[in-house]
Every structure is written in C-alpha cells, then in structure tokens.
Design a protein around this nucleic acid. Structure first.
Length: 510
RNA sequence: GGCGGCAUAGCCAAGCGGUAAGGCAGAGGUCUGCAAAACCUCUAUACCUCGGUUCAAUUCCGAGUGCCGCCUCCA
C-alpha cells in the first residue's frame, strides 16, 4: 500500500511527506475536551477528523498509539461545580460520561489512551520543577509561571512575534508576572477549591502543562502528530512547545495538524452569540452517519458552515450509499435464487462497437488512496466512491435488464463491494447499519409518540386507509384508490407501492 | 493595530498552469394501473473585480472588494 502521505503541517504552513519517527508506529496526541458541558458539533468535527486520520493510518498498516486527554480540572469546571453546588470531580466525571455517549453514537473509535489531567499531577509537578531548575519558570507566592522570554522559539508555531503580541495585547498586565505573556504552569488554589500538594504549596495545574505531561508520559519526549482545533494553535500549542522543548531540549512534535472550525451562519459558534449546537441537537433529528458524511464532504482544514439543510443534504447522500449497498445485496440474491446467468463475454470487444471498456477496481482504489494521501482529502476520496457507486448501479441495472451478467462485471462488482466496505465503513466510519433497516427508517418516519405527519394522524388510521385503497386497487377502481392517496398527501403523507406492499412516509414541508 | 484564511453552478464542495470532481436540489427517461421510491441520463461558455507573468490562469504575482478567523477561555 502506498504510504506516501503528505500532511499539511501548521508549523511549516505547507504539506510535508509524512515520516514517522519509528517506521511502523505512529505516535499521535490530540487535545481533548474540558469536561464541563455537553459536546457540541465543533467537538464532533474535531474528533471525527482525527478518528478518520487514526483509522486511515491504521488502514495503511501503521500501529498507531493514539492519546486523547480529558481536562478534568480547570476554572470552568470549578465555576460550574459552584453553580450547581457540586464537586468539581462530579461535574467532570458527568460530562466525560456524556462525551463518551456522544462519541460512541458517532462511531468515533476509542483512542489507545484517554488520560485525565488529575491522574497526571505528579508528572506535571515534575515538569514544572524541572523548568524552574533550568531557569525557564519561576514561582511567585505559590503560582508558577513559564518564562516565555527564556524560550527562543516562542511564536514559531503560530507565526507570531513577541513584539506584535505585546503591541496587540488586549489583556491587562498581571503585575505579578515578569511578562504578560508568561503563562501559569501551576496555580495556587483558593479557599475551597480542589487542590494538590506541591513544592509550592496547595494548588492545581495550569492548562497547558497537562498536555505536555500526558504526551510525554504515554508517548515519549518526541512524537509524530499533535492535533486539535485551529483555535488551539495559540496560545495552547505554542505554550506546549515552549515548555516541552525547554524541558527536554528535543523537538516536541514533528507534524502539527489543526482542523477548521464549525460555523453557524458563517460565524464561529460561541456561547455569547447563543449559536451553540450540541451533538445531541443533531442526533435528535439525524442519523449520526449523516453528520460524519457532512464533515467528510469538506476538507478538514476548511471551515464548515453548519446548517440543518446541509445535514439533510448529507443524509440524502448517505441514503444513496446505503441504496447502492442494498442493491448489490439484492442482486447477489437474485443471481443465486432466480438465476441471473453469469456469462463469459468479452466486454472490451464490444467497446469498439460503442460498448464500454472493462472497469478496473484498481483505478478507483488508486484514486481513493491518492486523495487520502494528499493531506487526507476526504472530499475528493468520497467523490471517488460516488463515481464507483454510479458504475455498480449501472452494471446491476443493465444486467437485470438483459438477465445475465458478464463474468468480468461480476468480478468487478464483488471487488467494488469489498472496496466500498473497506473505505466507507473502515475509514469513514459509515455504513454501520444494516442497509435494509437504514432505508426503511428513511421511508417510514414515525415520531416517537406514534403521531404521524402534519395532520397528526396516527399509524392505525393510516394503515386502515392503506388497506382500503389496496382493496380498490385490487378491484381496479383506481379513481377511488387515487382519491385516498391524494387525501393522505394533503396531510403530508406519501404512499409508496413497493414489492413488499404499501408503505408510507411523512413528506418534507411543502 | 499585527498575523492568517476564504471567494468555483440554485445550495454545498473538490481541483489550483493546459478551458471545470462529487453531493443536494431541478429537468428528462426506465419501472409502475397511475404515482411515489429507486436507478440511469442531463445540468458552469466572466471559477469576486481589475491589472501583470505565460504559448496557455479558475489555478502564479500585484492591487482592490467582500466575508471570516487568531492575537483572551475555546475543538
């Protein structure tokens, strides 16, 4: 398999050929959530993005050690605990639980390790002490700050220079710190706050240090990939580099990967704008894979404008994928049971006579993998699959029409089905459902309370009308049958006569 | 103020030197009693504007316009 992956590195602002430190192993760290609220769709995008990268690297045969942490102690958690008259650890454990529920629902696979900040306190204290010893940090009244001026490369990731930062400063200078850019490695705790013993008295860790500590603990001093949302570039990742490299004297990370934001109406989601959409808001209305596909349609570095119309569109696309898989399954059944003959016929001979050239699955595979190797271009990769789907649909339909399938086509069809499963299911995390069930659930759309459609008819009523109509149809009284169908349509219910009987679904708003 | 990103069909979105992938929506067709669903086919002649480089630019360079982000916690 072609392992020439080019990754866009935030550090160099360009695509670089990926070369892991160890030939067959990839060390990857992704900044996790601060557990104080329900996950929103921005979290979903970040973790689906890195899940896809994780799955893809594994597909290429890499043994990936993937660490994704939890920040389970911080100001926001403490604030929430105070508001709810609860303990910080209750808040964090509650939201870690909610997070896991959502990630499971979205088929985001579990990382190798999911450490919590509070389980890494001794390592963080070590790091801070070491930095003080080296002169890269200093203590003032129980607080420990990193001395930004002591690290020459500060700003190299976010491409900022210190002078600009000072000029553009919007935060009031903390009198205690030597420099306003200096950031806390350790914070002295206030009365009643959760705290841990340290050489500087009771306190708790600053935010940035936890990722350095956890990354080093589980992956070592230098790693291949470090990822997160693009908002983390500055100051979080910049600070991680400063403290880690000051401490070890080694390069901390080789490839920095950052995903783009999810916007609402072209604007960043933020609590102050009240435009936050949680994962659950989406999952209430849509299949989790619709969200995944929605993200796959856009390159991970671009920002995405979220809208329910967009998810609806992705849902339709997903349905097309499931239909194709289902069609293939049905076709295989028909071949077996009803005898669609598999004939040996030279398709290429027919090509001259205006026929088509034989298909080669390798072309599709190459296109797909080349796209993914180009900085994980899922949008392009997914288009390859849609091309393939059109092709297989056509082969199946043609074969059904002529009542035989050419043996080359049969081979192509089987390998295509395998490849679709490998890519869509294995790498994109789609097609986890049984196709039949998925398609049916899209046809019959019954609200949880059994009330259907805008006219608020219940299922029983509709079924009665369907039976009545089918009576009319049997007697060829089509006029009367059509009247029933029309009356239901006016109430927003569409009838569909299928081989398995009549089903119905609620229409979109007219 | 400093730094950065984006502008491609009705909508979404790839491509980024040789005149435009894919999806949704829409239109035709096949199927069906008729429909619907499904499937197939079709759907960009100023790729924001103006200059420049080039045999050739949506793709590179410059200027401009518009939108957005980071510089504060944030995926």
């Amino acid at each position: 398999m072609n392992r020439n992956i080019y990754i866009y590195n935030t550090f160099s602002l360009s695509k670089e050929l990926f070369k892991p430190i160890n030939e067959d192993r990839v060390l990857m760290y992704v900044c996790g959530i601060t557990a104080y609220d329900l996950p929103h769709i921005g979290h979903a995008r970040a973790y689906i993005t890195f899940d896809t990268i994780y799955r893809y690297l594994r597909r290429l045969g890499y043994n990936v050690v993937y660490v994704r942490n939890f920040t389970d102690i911080d100001d926001k958690i403490i604030k929430k605990a105070n508001e709810e008259n609860s303990a910080a650890e209750n808040i964090s454990s509650k939201y870690i639980g909610e997070y896991h529920k959502d990630m499971d629902a979205l088929y985001v696979s579990s990382p190798t390790y999911e450490p919590k900040a509070t389980e890494t306190i001794p390592e963080m204290i070590n790091l801070a002490s070491g930095l003080i010893k080296k002169g890269n940090a200093y203590e003032i009244n129980g607080d420990v700050f990193f001395r930004v001026g002591s690290f020459k490369g500060y700003g190299k990731l976010s491409h900022k220079n210190i002078d600009d930062l000072i000029a553009g400063s919007r935060i009031p200078v903390n009198e205690e710190k030597e420099n306003f850019l200096d950031f806390a490695l350790w914070k002295k705790s206030k009365e009643g706050e959760p705290s841990w013993d340290s050489p500087w008295g009771k306190g708790r860790p600053g935010w940035h240090i936890e990722c350095s500590a956890m990354s080093m603990k589980f992956l070592g001093e230098s790693i291949d990939i470090h990822g997160g949302g693009s908002d983390l570039i500055f100051p979080h990742h910049e600070n991680e580099i400063a403290q880690s490299e000051s401490y070890t004297g080694k390069k901390f990370v080789n490839y920095w990967i950052h995903n783009g934001f999810v916007n609402i109406n072209s604007e960043k989601m933020s609590k102050s704008l009240k435009n936050f959409i949680t994962v659950r808001d989406v999952l209430d209305k849509f299949h989790p894979e619709a969200l995944r596909l929605f993200f796959m349609f856009t390159h991970y570095r671009s920002f995405i404008d979220f809208s329910f119309e967009g998810i609806e569109s992705a849902k339709q696309s997903l349905l097309r994928l499931y239909q194709a898989v289902n069609l293939y399954g049905e076709f295989k059944k028909i071949i077996k049971e009803n005898g669609v003959a598999v004939k040996k016929e030279d398709v290429s001979a027919k090509a001259d006579a205006g026929g088509r050239t034989p298909e080669n699955i390798e072309n599709y595979r190459n296109d797909f993998y080349n796209s993914m190797n180009d900085d994980f271009n899922t949008a392009k990769a997914v288009s390859v699959i849609f091309d393939l789907v059109r092709k297989t649909n056509k082969i199946i339909n043609d074969s059904m029409a002529q009542n035989f399938i050419n043996s080359e086509d049969a081979v192509f069809l089987d390998s295509a089905a395998l490849f679709i499963k490998e890519s869509l299911s294995g790498i994109f995390g789609l097609l986890n459902d049984d196709p039949k069930r998925f398609i049916e659930s899209n046809l019959i759309n019954i609200a949880a309370d059994g009330v259907v459609g805008r006219a608020y008819m219940n299922e029983e009523e509709i079924k009665k009308l369907i039976d009545k109509r089918n009576e009319f149809r049997k007697n060829k009284e089509y006029g009367l049958a059509d009247e029933i169908r029309k009356s239901l349509l006016e109430k927003g219910i569409v009838l569909e006569d299928t081989g398995f009987g009549t089903t119905y679904r609620v229409t979109n708003l007219i």
